[in-house]
Computed example of a mutant assay.
Amino acid sequence: MTTLNRLYRHHLFWPLAVLAALLLFNLLYSPDFFNLVVRNGHLYGSLIDILNFGAPLMLVAIGMTLVIATKGIDLSVGSIVAIAGAQACLTISKGADQNAWGVVLSAIGLAIGLSLVLGAWNGFLVSATGIQPIIATLILMVAGRGIAQLITSGQIITISSDRYGYIGIGSLAALPFSIFVVAAVFLLVSLLIRRTALGLFIESVGCNPRASRLIGIRSRLVLVTVYVFSGLCAGVAGLILSSNVASADGNNAGLWYELDAILAVVIGGTSLNGGRFYLAGTVVGALIIQTLTTTIYMIGVPPEITLVVKAFVVLAVCLIQSESFRKKIVQRWKTRRYPAEREVARHV
């Protein structure tokens, strides 16, 4: 196999090609799309906005990747995003000094702790009770919005805390702090799944959980672990989102994040049938979705049809990435291009 063929068949080839095509379209539509400006030591520009606003989705998608690798699904991540943001903002709003380190750290700790508990609940339902993942997480998806509304008493909680706001709008080395959060989580997970046996355990459970148990893998513990981690990622994403807007909206925060995360995982090359997974592909998939969202807003697509346009583009991306679909297109093209040769070959 030639180098070109190996590159063509690499799982990152088509996601990166689609991302490059989206960026090129934006550059042609708006020549200053790639411009970066330094103001007060901070970098600003469309590319920085894509990374910053896409950080919560990248986090949620990383957690979703491990869940899908076990042949599961987590529909509750959007609700956990809302719950974590609501809990953090409620704790800060009740503090005597909203900028006090004690108040901010308590808010972060409570939000993360609650996210871990919710993730463990999903893992318990899937591993111990045997409920199908789509049903088990659908329960929290529906109830979670109600929990977030109860935390906020049905209102939008606004806060004024510079230290908490640093999570979403702060900068480190001229780049948004949220990018470093995503990078840290990505590197940590990559090391754990590629430098230890955890990655093999996850893939084994996703391929055949019964066989995994027979060879000594504690498949239930693996399932609980990935759902807890998914809840953790959603909780951190909720902190970033709420600190970015200095408020918590239990009804709209994290809305449709579960669907965008699943799309990012699929675009990145991970199969919904479980088994082998690709974290780098997931991050590229999340960047594609965020870039697409930015593109839609930039070209002035009416808000009422934004989701329709987004759905069609995502469908096109998935079809382009499908090897079987590409083979069918090539086969039909050859049939129409060389009908005589095909007829001769059929009678030989």
Rank of each mutant, 00 (worst) to 15 (best):
L232T: 06
P209K: 01
L198R: 06
V181M: 11
I108C: 03
G123T: 07
T137S: 00
I151S: 07
R220L: 10
A128P: 02
R145D: 07
L241K: 11
A136D: 01
G154V: 11
I131E: 10
L221I: 05
R195T: 09
V189I: 13
L140E: 09
T137I: 00
G231C: 04
W121I: 15
S242D: 11
L223G: 06
F177P: 12
F201A: 11
L200H: 08
F201D: 01
V222I: 15
D162K: 10
T225Y: 01
S219P: 09
L198V: 05
I193E: 12
A211G: 14
Y164P: 06
R195L: 12
P133L: 04
G206Y: 03
L110N: 09
T152W: 06
N122E: 09
T225S: 02
P133S: 02
L214R: 10
G206I: 05
A128K: 14
L239F: 12
W121L: 14
A111N: 10
I217T: 03
A173F: 14
T196L: 08
S242M: 09
P133V: 05
Q132V: 10
I108Q: 03
A197S: 14
G130D: 13
G238Q: 01
N208C: 01
G123C: 05
L150H: 10
L175Y: 12
G109F: 11
A211H: 02
L214I: 09
L232C: 10
Y166L: 08
Q132H: 15
G130H: 14
G168D: 02
A183W: 02
G165Y: 12
G231E: 01
G168A: 02
G199N: 06
A120Y: 06
L221Q: 09
V226Y: 07
V245I: 15
A234I: 03
P209Q: 04
G123L: 05
V224A: 11
V228G: 01
L118A: 13
L118R: 05
V142P: 13
S153F: 07
S106W: 02
A211D: 04
A183T: 01
N208T: 03
P176N: 08
A237Y: 10
A183G: 08
Q149K: 15
L192D: 11
T158A: 13
A107F: 12
A234K: 00
G231W: 00
L125R: 07
L175R: 10
I131C: 03
L172H: 12
I147S: 11
I157A: 00
